[in-house]
């Protein structure tokens, strides 16, 4: 849609050694821009969806349908003073957020956005994506613990605790996908769904994956690390406004990543008639993101011990059932 795929492919197939590097670079820049545009749109979408659920209008004044409101807010946040708490570990505290953001964008870069081309086209790229994705809670822990704030510390501890509850069910679901597709290559998994989307084979697996993903993305009802009514802002308590824009950006990048991944693993990714592959993928991802946001508008936050119980007593058995189904199919 946005990108001339054929142009990229021809560039890649040309004999010059520089052209491949150039193609990869062009692709990376394109993905970066795509992430910025989609994140911005997701930010607007979330405000509108939550507002509709709450008998409000959401942003309406700045730009058409309030589309420019987030830009105005972003500018305002950037104009505010930056502050580093005295107790904070300067290096870790300032680096954690940019690093997490870079990681999230890199993860999107690994995903198969278009059929012909991408960084993730090698065996077991799905495993790599998950290995890297699991670093996020670790960075949250570093960011929270390095800020020297007790609320942030509790938030970061919760983050690590929660890791125990959703990581294992998620890995089981991934295993079931690998069994079905007979590959852990992301491209192969999407291509294997050309006859039938995996959601129809593994509805339980999708449920487990969706819930674990909500936890992984720290979306409500698993927003225990931020938990504004308990921990003020959790691990972000001492983050001042300019860096907070990064946190918001990170939040939406992760949501985008999560919805993309679900669209690829269960809804056939770029597969679809008429429209170009990327358009199909974005439409599917946005629909999933819509549901993630709807959950936020309606859910009550869970308690940490209940999240662990949910992970071990509900999600894990379901994931095992899902694995058995995958074997049978």
């Amino acid at each position: 849609m946005l990108i001339g795929e054929s142009w990229l492919v021809s560039l890649l197939n040309s004999p010059s050694p520089y052209s491949e590097a150039l193609g990869l670079f062009a692709y990376a820049v394109f993905v970066g821009l795509l992430v910025i545009v989609v994140d911005y749109f997701l930010g607007w979408l979330e405000r509108k969806i939550v507002a509709k659920a709450q008998l409000r209008h959401g942003p309406t004044m700045v730009g058409k349908f309030g589309l420019l409101q987030n830009l105005a807010d972003f500018t305002k946040l950037l104009a505010k003073a930056s502050y580093l708490p005295k107790r904070a570990d300067r290096l870790l505290f300032t680096l954690a957020l940019p690093f997490m953001l870079a990681l999230a964008i890199f993860l999107i870069l690994l995903l198969p956005l278009v059929p012909s081309f991408g960084f993730g086209n090698f065996a077991s790229s799905l495993v790599l994506v998950f290995a890297l994705f699991s670093f996020t809670p670790l960075f949250i822990f570093i960011a929270g613990a390095s800020s020297g704030n007790k609320f942030a510390e509790i938030g970061s501890q919760r983050s690590v605790l929660m890791l125990l509850s959703y990581e294992l069910p998620m890995i089981f679901v991934i295993a079931s996908l690998g069994i079905l597709a007979k590959s852990l290559n992301l491209f192969a998994i999407v291509q294997a769904q050309s006859k039938m989307w995996y959601i129809f084979f593994l509805p339980i697996g999708f449920f487990v994956f969706f819930v674990s993903m909500l936890a992984e993305l720290e979306r409500s009802p698993f927003d225990l690390r931020e938990a504004d009514s308990e921990l003020i802002a959790g691990w972000l308590t001492d983050v001042s406004a300019p860096s907070y824009t990064l946190a918001l950006f990170l939040d939406y990048t992760k949501t985008f990543f999560g919805s993309l991944l679900m669209a690829m693993l269960f809804f056939g990714g770029w597969l679809g008639p008429v429209l170009p592959g990327l358009a199909w993928l974005l439409v599917k991802a946005l629909i999933i993101a819509f549901f993630i946001m709807l959950v936020r508008a309606t859910a009550v936050r869970m308690r940490i011990d209940r999240v662990l119980r949910l992970g071990w007593y509900v999600l894990l058995p379901l994931a095992v059932v899902n694995l058995i189904i995958a074997f049978i199919v």
């Binding site: 709450q54 409000r56 938990a227 009514s229 308990e230 859910a299 009550v300």
Partner: peptide, 17 residues
């Protein structure tokens, strides 16, 4: 009360209406 439980303002807005 629902806000305290971590419910993001939805019931709050309904109740206020």
């Amino acid at each position: 009360f629902l806000n305290d439980l971590g419910h993001f303002f939805t019931v709050f807005m309904w109740a206020f209406a």
